[in-house]
Design a protein around this nucleic acid. Structure first.
Lengths: 228, 228
DNA sequence: ACACAAAAGAGAGCACTGCTCTTGCTCTGG
DNA sequence: CCAGAGCAAGAGCAGTGCTCTCTTTTGTGT
């Protein structure tokens, strides 16, 4: 039911895609806050009200861009993971981390869209959670593959965190010890802290050789989750 | 020249403060993107054009709020550091980290203003760099105090990062080994990664007991910079 | 083959925004 | 005491998101 589903439906996806493309272009130029429906429509040679046939609001368009961005980043991470399939665990880990960093540097405004401050008033709809977790799952997969033998060391849990960590392990990393599950979530958040600081200018006059610095930092993260 | 500087100058500071206060209120209510000069003016019983006598543009007002936010956060960190003056290094470290987290949870929109995506098109003016580094200096101070005897272990440097780390140590942490300087910068970025993820909803359905989780994570950071 | 309904575009309009410019009023320093 | 600086007010411009109505296009069932 997909090959020839009417010329109208075909046109609809094409126009939808054209709108998103143009929006992405304007996003890259001026940032999310200045993204204007009218400007997008103008550039596409249509009138602004026509655009509402495709996206019911500006936030709706933004949400579509957010999902695409999560997917694009997730795919970059998975590609890097697969390309490093034969390497040692630490190398696979850093490969994924560096793919995240590279994607962020190439798509700064899209990165800001998904990992910066949530836009205006809205809260992310449930539709975004699956694409949002692709990077996390890529990292989890690497650690799971590596933890075959006896569990390598991660930071011991406090009593307060043990039940929480056991729940995390059950939910996210079945089969891995809770120490590792907790360490993974920590490392996941910290990875994006590093990327965000570089991207948002916090390393200005602090870190010069950012590539080397990032490599050093994510190697540390790999150790923290028990990879050697 | 400050005590009695004319009623006019006095009024000016008062009005300026009132504008910032009202702006902060609206910021907390609707977020930075929806902060409207006209609404602020309206609430203050003045007309929008009058506001331009005090701030030359919307971005100008935002910048003033940014600086205030950095200062407020910096002060919170320093207060926590001083309150824990007698404790062990790790306790002092976590006290500062938790002060940062608490401040962020209490002022989410202001946090987003300074550590979220940089607003629209602008780039932070030089005026912001000093207040922005207060948290970092609080953390550095704790580590410097603790590293009196033989340098405790931090992650060894790669050859690629050594010159960079030596520069960092010279600039930021004179007297401390370059391994520790690098680890400090890493931990600094990672701290804000943790806070940002919690604040921006990334831990939704992932981390439940966020307090315990944060404590665990920053204890790890303390270890990474060589505190025990 | 044709008519009809659904889909899409066009345009005007509302309420809002940041910002500028001109016009007056008020306070203050020489 | 009074000229000039500081300040407020109002109108106005160009832009925004979004809604409503009207017209045109287009796919499809009889």
């Amino acid at each position: 039911m997909s090959t020839t589903q009417g010329a109208r439906a075909r046109a609809r996806i094409e126009v939808t895609a054209a709108i998103k493309d143009e929006a992405r272009r304007r996003l890259a130029a001026d940032g999310a806050a200045k993204l204007s429906l009218r400007a997008v429509a103008r550039e596409l040679g249509m009138v602004s009200s026509a655009l509402y046939r495709y996206f019911s609001s500006r936030d709706d368009l933004l949400t579509a861009l957010i999902i695409d961005a999560y997917d694009s980043l997730g795919q970059a991470a998975e590609t890097a993971r697969d390309a490093a399939a034969g390497s040692a665990p630490v190398a696979r880990w850093t490969a994924v981390c560096e793919a995240v960093r590279s994607w962020a540097l190439e798509h700064p405004h899209e990165y800001a869209l998904i990992y910066g401050s949530p836009v205006p008033g809205y809260s992310a709809p449930e539709t975004t959670v699956a694409p949002a977790s692709r990077v996390a799952f890529a990292l989890i997969g690497i650690v799971r593959d590596a933890h075959q033998g006896p569990g390598l060391a991660a930071l011991p849990l406090s009593e307060a965190l043990r039940p929480e960590a056991e729940r995390m392990a059950a939910d996210l990393t079945p089969g891995l010890p809770p120490e590792v599950a907790a360490a993974l979530v920590v490392a996941w958040a910290q990875l994006f802290g590093l990327v965000g600081f570089e991207l948002f200018g916090q390393f200005h006059r602090v870190v010069e050789d950012r590539e080397a610095f990032f490599r050093h930092a994510v190697t540390g993260l790999a150790h923290d989750v028990g990879l050697r």
